[in-house]
């Protein structure tokens, strides 16, 4: 049994290095819920996209707006897109937390968390405002931490 515990300990010690390597170079995902355009074939956020990837990201600096039917509909209605880089978003519970926190707000018309890109994608209702301080507070309320924030019409037009 001691041998088993030692093996697990060694495995645990080695895990971080493998994890970083895999995240940075080897992740290749089939997308189900989101779609990303505009940079097919590019390696953004550490992920190589498959040739049949519908995914659509519109790039601003390092951030890209992940497009879903709900995001597109909200943009078509004249809403302002916002993309937030989120630290610590590694599982569906993280996505659920942010989807619930932002999805129930009256000033948000569409929300999507992209685990691959590690971003929170929002479209505000036309005329609504949500400053960076407020955004960061809401991400914190979800249990996570906001990093970079990009917003505005340019985000959806590039």
């Amino acid at each position: 049994m001691i041998r088993t515990l030692l093996t697990i300990s060694l495995f645990a010690l080695a895990a971080p290095a493998f994890a970083q390597d895999n995240t940075a170079h080897n992740s290749s995902t089939s997308y189900g819920s989101g779609s990303h355009f505009g940079d097919q074939g590019a390696d953004h956020a550490g992920h190589d996209h498959k040739a049949d990837d519908h995914a659509s990201h519109t790039m601003v600096s390092d951030l890209a707006l992940t497009r879903t039917p709900e995001i597109d509909a909200a943009l078509a209605a004249g809403g302002e897109p916002v993309v937030v880089k989120v630290l610590g978003a590694v599982c569906d519970f993280c996505a659920t937390a942010m989807n619930k926190t932002f999805g129930r707000r009256d000033d948000v018309s569409a929300v999507h968390v992209d685990l691959d890109a590690k971003t929170l994608n929002l479209v505000l209702i036309p005329g609504a405002e949500m400053d960076d301080k407020r955004l960061r507070k809401l991400v914190k309320k979800s249990g996570y931490k906001a990093d970079d924030i990009a917003r505005g019409a340019a985000l959806s037009q590039r």
Partner: peptide, 24 residues
């Protein structure tokens, strides 16, 4: 108790995520 796990594939938001784990 300690637990270690590995995901054989990386799923995106809303996908079915699978983990293989061992708890001691």
């Amino acid at each position: 108790a300690a637990k270690v796990g590995v995901a054989p594939y990386i799923g995106d938001t809303g996908d079915l995520h699978t983990w293989l784990m061992v708890e001691v």
